[in-house]
Design a binder for these strands. Structure first.
Lengths: 341, 341
DNA sequence: TTGAAAGCGGTACCAC
DNA sequence: GTGGTACCGCTTTCAA
C-alpha cells in the first residue's frame, strides 16, 4: 500500500492524504480523521526511501567507529553511549547508522557519508588532543557534535565533562585522607581527556607541594587487563601506592582483581577512586551491582549528546554548543569510606 | 554534483554515465574511463537516497536491541558482535541500522521497519527458547537470521554453537580431573542457550551417575556482579564447589574476583572453565590479556552471521541456512592446567 | 554502444 | 480545504 493507492481508495488526492498524515493544519478535521482511520486500517506506513529523497533529509545520524588497533573504543563505554543516543534518535524519528572503519580511513568514511547524503549529522567520540576529524567535518559542512574536546576546543560543538576539575577533586579527596603515594591509571596519552585528567591530578598534588611519582602513573588503552597488570606491577614493586585513581570502570575492574589477589580490601586496606567518563561518576568501589550507576550515566551522556546533535542539525547556523558537565564525587557506595593513612 | 550534471559535463546521457559507473558491460571502455575519471575529479558520489528509492533496496540491515530490564543485552558481547557484523556490512555496501526499543514494543519496531522499507533484513540476537520474533518476521516476509536458536529450530535460518556438546565436554573435562562439586553459573533460564548448556552439564554428570547440585547452579543476566555474588555465596556456603563452569567471560570476571578475594588461585586452587558464547571459546583462565581471544571470536561470529544474512537477502528463496559451530576447548592459556582433586 | 523517458513514492508549491 | 503537478536523483526498460 502506497500513498497513491491510499488516496485513490479514499477518493482524495495524494496531496491531501499526505497533509492529513503529516499533521498539516489546513486539512478539515473530518477529512483527517477519515484518512487516519484508512491509513491505520491499511497498515499504511510511508516509504522511508521515498520520503528521504523527497525531503532531502536522511533522517539518519552516523556514528563512525574506527577499528584500528589500540585506539579502538572500549566496549562498555561504547555500547552504553550508543544505547543512550539511540533512544533519543528513535524518539525523534532519526535512525542510527553505525559505520565501522576497519582500514583506518576514517576520512574516507566521512567524505563518503557526506557525499552520498546518507546521514544528516555525525557524532564524534573519543577525540585526540589534536584531532583531524574536526577540520574535515567542518570542511564537509557536515553537522557534528563531539563527545569530549580537542585541546583547542573552539569553533565547534562539544559536550564534555570537567576532567581537570574532576581529577583535581578526586586527588584532593585522597590527599585529605593522608595518602601521598597515589597511582594514576590513565587512558592513552593521545586522548584529550587523559591529558586533562593528568593535569587535574598534577594540580592537586602541586597545591600541596607534591608531584606525580613516575612509577605510579600509567597510560594505555582502557582495558581490564591493563588495569590488572599495571596495578599488580605497582603493588608488587617498590614504594607501592596506597590509593588508586582509575580513569575508567573497566580499568578499575582489573585493579580490583589485583587488589583482591593480594588480600587488600577496598575501602579498608586500599582506596580506589574510579572515574567514569561521560556524565561522570567518581567513587571508591567501582559502582554498585553491575556498574549500574556508571552504565546509566554513560547512557545519559549519549542521550544528551544526541539531543544536542539533533538541535544542531535542525539549526546548523546556531552558535556552537559547548557544554561542560561537572562531576559528582560519590564515595563509599558499598564498601564504606576510603581508608586514611 | 549529481548524475545529471556529471553527464552534462561529459556530453553523455545519464544512462550511459550510470552504466559506466555501475560496471555494466555494454559501455565502451574508453567511455567508461572518461566517466570514471570525471567522476573522480568531481568527487562524485551517487546520492544514496535516490539510489535506494530507484532500486527499491534499502542497502541497510537492521539490528534491533530491546532495552527492557533484565533481558537487556550484555555489553561486551553486544558490542563485539556488532563490530564484526558491521565490518562485513561495510565491505558489502550495506549500512547498519541500529534500533533501540525502549518501550518493549519489539513487534512494533519490526512492523515499522518492514512497512517503511528502511531495511532489507534483520539480525536477531539472543533468542528465547520460545521466541515470538521468529513468527512475526516470517509473517512480515522480512529476511532475517538468528544468532542462536529457539527450542524448535526448524524453518528459519540460524547460526549457533553446539551448546550441549560444549558444556558436556567442559563438564567431562572437570570430572576427569576428579571434581565432583562443579558449579554452573548460567545465563537467564528463558534463553535457549542457557537451557542447552544446562542440558550438556546434566548429561555429562548423568553419564557418571551424578546430578547437578541445586545449590551450585545459578541463573541470571550475565553480568560481572552476578558472577561475583553467586560465586561468593557458593564459596562461602556449605559444600563449596571445587570448580566453576561459567557461561560467559563477563560472569567469569566476577567469579575470578570472588576467587581472588578468598586467596584461591586459578588453575591451582580452583578450576574455572569459562565458556564464551558465540564462535566459542572455553578455557580455564578467562582468556589472556584483555580477553582478546574471546572478543575476536565474538566478532568472528558477528561476521559470519552478517555474511549469511546478506546471502539470505540476495536469495530469499534459498533453503534455511542452519549452521552449528563446534567449540574448541582451550585449557591453561596463562595460568597452567586446571587443578585435579 | 548510447540515449530518451518512465518510473520509484513521497513532498510541497501553486492554483482553485 | 483540496487537487494538479513538478520535482528529488537515480535505475532501468525500450528504441535507436
Amino acid at each position: 500500500m502506497n500513498l497513491k493507492q491510499l488516496a485513490d481508495s479514499l477518493n482524495l488526492s495524494q496531496t491531501t492524504v499526505s497533509r492529513a498524515l503529516n499533521g498539516y493544519p489546513e486539512v478539515r478535521e473530518e477529512t483527517r480523521a477519515r484518512v487516519l482511520a484508512a491509513a491505520k486500517a491499511a497498515h499504511y506506513a510511508p516509504n522511508s526511501r521515498a520520503r528521504r529523497l523527497a525531503t532531502g533529509r536522511a533522517m539518519t545520524i552516523g556514528h563512525v567507529i574506527p577499528l584500528t588497533g589500540q585506539t579502538e573504543m572500549v566496549n562498555p563505554i561504547f555500547a552504553d553511549f550508543l544505547i543512550g543516543a539511540g533512544e533519543v534518535y528513535g524518539r525523534e524519528g532519526y535512525d542510527l547508522l553505525l559505520s565501522m572503519v576497519t582500514d583506518g580511513d576514517t576520512e574516507g568514511a566521512f567524505r563518503q557519508l557526506a557525499a552520498n547524503g546518507s546521514v544528516d549529522g555525525i557524532m564524534v567520540q573519543a577525540p585526540q588532543a589534536e584531532d583531524p576529524r574536526i577540520a574535515l567535518l567542518q570542511e564537509l559542512k557536515m553537522p557534528f557534535l563531539v563527545h569530549g574536546r580537542t585541546g583547542d576546543a573552539k569553533g565547534y560543538s562539544w559536550l564534555d565533562i570537567a576532567n581537570v576539575r574532576a581529577f583535581r577533586r578526586a586527588t584532593d579527596f585522597l590527599l585529605d585522607l593522608g595518602h601521598t603515594r597515589i597511582a594514576l591509571i590513565n587512558g592513552q596519552a593521545g586522548f584529550d581527556f587523559a591529558q586533562r585528567r593528568l593535569r587535574g591530578f598534577e594540580e592537586a598534588l602541586a597545591a600541596r607541594g607534591l608531584a606525580p611519582l613516575p612509577h605510579l602513573v600509567a597510560n594505555d588503552a582502557m582495558t581490564e587487563s591493563y588495569g590488572y597488570l599495571s596495578a599488580a606491577a605497582m603493588l608488587d614493586g617498590p614504594e607501592p601506592p596506597t590509593a588508586f585513581l582509575a580513569s575508567s570502570v573497566i580499568i578499575a575492574i582489573g585493579l580490583r582483581r589485583a587488589a583482591g589477589e593480594r588480600g587488600l580490601r577496598l575501602g579498608r586496606d586500599i582506596s580506589i577512586i574510579c572515574h567514569d567518563d561521560e556524565l561522570s561518576y567518581l567513587n571508591n568501589d567501582v559502582g554498585g551491582p553491575d556498574f549500574t550507576a556508571t552504565r546509566s550515566s554513560i547512557r545519559a551522556a549519549g542521550r544528551r549528546c544526541a539531543e544536542n546533535l539533533i538541535a544542531l542539525i535542525h539549526d546548523p547556523e546556531q552558535p556552537p554548543i559547548q557544554e561542560l558537565w561537572d562531576v559528582t564525587l560519590t564515595v563509599g557506595r558499598s564498601t564504606g569510606p576510603c581508608p586514611t593513612i
